[in-house]
Design a protein around this nucleic acid. Sequence first.
DNA 1: AGGTAAGCGAGACGGTACGTCAGGTCTTAAA
DNA 2: TTTAAGACCTGACGTACCGTCTCGCTTACCT
Lengths: 192, 192, 192, 192
Amino acid sequence: MSEQRRGAPRSEAARIAILEATARLVRERGYEQLSMEGVAAAAHVGKQTIYRWWGSKSELVAESMLDGFLMPGGEEPPNTGDLRADLAAWLREIFVFVESPDNELMLRSLVSAATVSREIGARLHEQLGAGSALTRRIDDAAATGEIRSGLLGQDVGELLIGAVVLRVLTREPTGPDLPGRLVRSILGDAPS
Amino acid sequence: MSEQRRGAPRSEAARIAILEATARLVRERGYEQLSMEGVAAAAHVGKQTIYRWWGSKSELVAESMLDGFLMPGGEEPPNTGDLRADLAAWLREIFVFVESPDNELMLRSLVSAATVSREIGARLHEQLGAGSALTRRIDDAAATGEIRSGLLGQDVGELLIGAVVLRVLTREPTGPDLPGRLVRSILGDAPS
Amino acid sequence: MSEQRRGAPRSEAARIAILEATARLVRERGYEQLSMEGVAAAAHVGKQTIYRWWGSKSELVAESMLDGFLMPGGEEPPNTGDLRADLAAWLREIFVFVESPDNELMLRSLVSAATVSREIGARLHEQLGAGSALTRRIDDAAATGEIRSGLLGQDVGELLIGAVVLRVLTREPTGPDLPGRLVRSILGDAPS
Amino acid sequence: MSEQRRGAPRSEAARIAILEATARLVRERGYEQLSMEGVAAAAHVGKQTIYRWWGSKSELVAESMLDGFLMPGGEEPPNTGDLRADLAAWLREIFVFVESPDNELMLRSLVSAATVSREIGARLHEQLGAGSALTRRIDDAAATGEIRSGLLGQDVGELLIGAVVLRVLTREPTGPDLPGRLVRSILGDAPS
DNA sequence: AGGTAAGCGAGACGGTACGTCAGGTCTTAAA
DNA sequence: TTTAAGACCTGACGTACCGTCTCGCTTACCT
């Protein structure tokens, strides 16, 4: 027989209030400045209610991220048939997002959180897009011969996303032609 | 005319003790768990002596890193004449270093510190090798036609180092052929 | 016309389990360290079941005491015909009880509880014996001329019990002749 | 040589602010409702500054009491030459003080504190007057034959103070003739 | 027999306070 | 004037209980 649960069930309202407050505070103040007390106060919740369900700040941030409270879903690259152009456009969009002062703090917070929690690391990876769509798009192009064979979508994705993460960390401005250069650095020029 | 200083000069012994203690504690406990009180105690130094010369934890860690207390100098890639092999060997060495449990904590600490301090970000970048040797090595190869023209050493370096940083964050195991795959993903196979 | 009750009646088993757990925990840990959660857990009872019937810790302790779970009934003084000897013997017995390390904590707990709850104060008074037997015994002796007239049993009882309570608070050791001295301080020596 | 002290010395201002805040809060809210956080806030002091010098609430209250922040010094009984009248007057004054609603809470707090801390118990004893003046006054009277010999000032003092403490606990009103009755219960009527 | 109240064990909830750790500033005496 | 020591105020930590509030169940009276 199933373990009989007793007592009041978990409050969904509290759960959501906590995750939302977490997301808001990470965006506003950053991961390091996020305090459990601050979250509890902002969510009008007792501290114990947080600690009952999440063991640490990093777990909390991880779930807030997973549930989409913290980051918009990983954007898929467009598909116009021209992979080089599509990847460059996608990268450009990401760099714009990354370099916006509104998102700077949040992104560095996520990286910081990833250094603390293995789970966040994995999540960050997926969320940034290496997960599926990007990988598939590249593998398809390799299959149709649009790009040279032997390229794995996963490897290419990792190189590109790595470059993005590196920019988040070094805070160096990117310049408008970087996306194109990076893509061409890997895929070469389009065959004429 | 010279600015005449009076009183006791800055104690070099204290300065070094502080930087060494910082490096040791970052390695042992990680950036987040590093406390200024802990550094002061470990270095047998008053807290004020730290705050007099460094304004924050991140400044302290940055200087500790810069002075070579925290990280071994960025390894230069070997030069056997075969760029692809050299880069792969260099990457392999880095991945071994990165995946060693002894260095894991320290590396994540550095990334974490970089999210806090712009200065550390820049330094981390240089230290990882994008600085000079790697870039030059690739540019030379492009000039001699060993690899296709149009590749900038800086871009290639950024892609490779980005992949390394990403692995530090995601903590996924690399596998022995990853370095080769990454290098070939960018440079393609050697011309026959 | 009788107030007809519906629903399940109060559980006697729960009531007794709660009072016994309360008594045990007061003895073991003292009034201050007694927690409602502790009582609920020890009695295998929901917290609400306690709060349904008792409004506060002090009420709970008061009833536990009244029902004899907490204190042995107030001892009556013996009656050998010699009031002075009887009172001294009775006091001696009480001092032994009071100074026993087993009872120390519980007695101080009762005093502490009395400071919180008027009801416990009254109960403690009765329980210590001022209630009836002691008073009557002294009044009888005054009536028969064994002791000087004008003495009220109640006043004498209060003086003696006050001395006991004072010892509970000050924790000073009593010495074997204190009971006799206190009794003689009030009643004087027996007429020859 | 003497252990050389270094670092800033203890702040007298903080010490006094803490003891005064403690005294005020005990008077206003009672011992049970006194919180260390409340004291820290009222004294504009960090909690650690309290915990650095006092280990617990009871220690803090004890010192506040000892330093006279909490209770007025034990009143000495008057000396008109008539011991019975003097003691009765002194008791009457004490009962007035004890039964004043302004002091009720504070006195029960002291008793409560005494149940927690042996030190406070001893202090309460002295402070209530058993210490010296009362004892001496009675002993003198016994020496001059004003009262029957064989009476120890200490015993008589304990009986009287015990009666006072008992009243504090039971909260029963005293009535105007109680002081006289208690004194006569011990000392008998004055010889004509 | 079915409906309707309670009572029950369990436990989640919003809170308050705990006692500790660390942050960054200030104050000493010694060097 | 710098140093080691360390007291100070502040703020956050993670825990223990408070008293209230659901839950799903059981018990017993009342149609």
